[in-house]
Computed example of a mutant assay.
Amino acid sequence: MGAQVARADQAEQTEQAERVRVIVADDHECVRIGVTGLLRASPRIDVVAEASDTHSLACQLDAHACDVVISDVCMPGMDGEYSSLSMLRRLVRTPRAPAVVVLTMISSAPMLSGLLQHGLQVIVDKRDVPYALLPAIDAARVREPFQSACTRSVLERAGAGCEPCVGVPSAREWEVLQLYVHGMPIGAIARQLGRSVKTVSTQKRNAMRKFGLATERELIEFATQIGLT
């Protein structure tokens, strides 16, 4: 009997050791609820925390031991910038830091190529979550690349000649772009922010260039994808 109890205890300890501790970060509550529900249905995943922006993600990383961070790349940033990209990029470059799975609705090939260029090699399109998220977690844990079907399709259509977008808009550029996609003309933005029309126009162009966006149509599509409109 004692040997059986010992074996049972050992099996339980092994199972616990193999469980994957995950933090889910997304600024849309419905996404967090869906992803967390899916993960909690798996007997080998522990969702240890959730975060709604980059600051709360940083706090949760300080508070909880974690193996994998699953994060939207377009959450509000910590210093007014547009994204959680800077933090995720630091994670993948830091030894013994949690692995990263990027969740995104972005379908811009230059932006997706830019994520890969930044070292964010595990990318799951939100439309692929039900069947791609668990394999992505497994790939991230062993530091292997993984792109879900929708992401892979965008990259394959773009081909090897796709120029990756590796820039990150400044806080001021992002501020201008948000106001613009919400329908405010350049002149009105300049008056509201106390800048010249030329400065605001330049900041808008710079932000679009860093996102790999060449036309107004691409800008509106991108804003829709990341939930700005």
Rank of each mutant, 00 (worst) to 15 (best):
L177G: 00
A3M: 12
H28Q: 15
A63N: 12
A132D: 14
R7S: 07
L103K: 03
S84D: 06
L134S: 03
D27A: 09
G37D: 09
V31F: 02
H55Y: 11
L103W: 01
H64K: 08
L219K: 03
A65V: 04
A63T: 11
L112Y: 08
V68R: 08
V73G: 04
T14W: 06
S108Y: 06
V168M: 09
T199D: 05
G194L: 02
Q16A: 13
S42Q: 15
V166I: 09
S42A: 14
T215C: 06
A140D: 11
V5Q: 14
A99T: 04
E15K: 13
A8E: 13
G161N: 10
P164F: 09
G161L: 08
S196V: 03
R191Y: 03
L177W: 07
A160Y: 05
R127D: 07
T229R: 15
A41Q: 15
K210W: 00
L38H: 07
A214W: 01
E218G: 10
L134A: 04
D138P: 01
V48Q: 10
Q178M: 11
I123V: 11
I70M: 09
L115V: 01
D67S: 00
A171K: 13
T199P: 01
S52C: 12
R195S: 00
A188G: 04
P98I: 03
A223Y: 08
L61V: 07
S107M: 14
A109K: 11
T199W: 01
M87Y: 04
C66E: 10
M184L: 15
R172M: 08
T94N: 11
V100K: 09
L116M: 13
A188C: 08
H28P: 02
A65N: 05
A6C: 01
M78G: 07
C165I: 00
I23M: 12
A58F: 05
A190P: 01
G167V: 02
L91D: 04
Q192S: 08
T199Y: 01
P169D: 02
V100D: 05
T14F: 03
R195C: 00
L177M: 15
G34W: 08
I123G: 01
V124K: 07
A17L: 10
V24W: 01
S83C: 15
R93N: 13
L155R: 08
A6D: 12
Q121F: 06
S108M: 10
R40D: 10
A136W: 06
D27M: 10
S56D: 12
F146Q: 12
P110H: 11
P43G: 13
E216S: 10
E81T: 13
I23T: 11
L38R: 15
L120M: 08
G227K: 15
H118Q: 03
D26V: 00
A136N: 07
S148W: 09
L228E: 14
R141S: 11
E29Q: 14
T199K: 07
V5E: 14
E175I: 00
P43M: 08
V122G: 05
A139F: 13
P76I: 11
Q225I: 00
E173F: 04
G119A: 05
Q178L: 10
R96K: 13
P95R: 15
V48I: 07
M184C: 04
D26M: 02
L134C: 04
D67H: 09
R217P: 00
L228P: 06
D125G: 12
A49C: 04
K204L: 15
L228I: 12
P110F: 07
D79T: 12
Q192V: 05
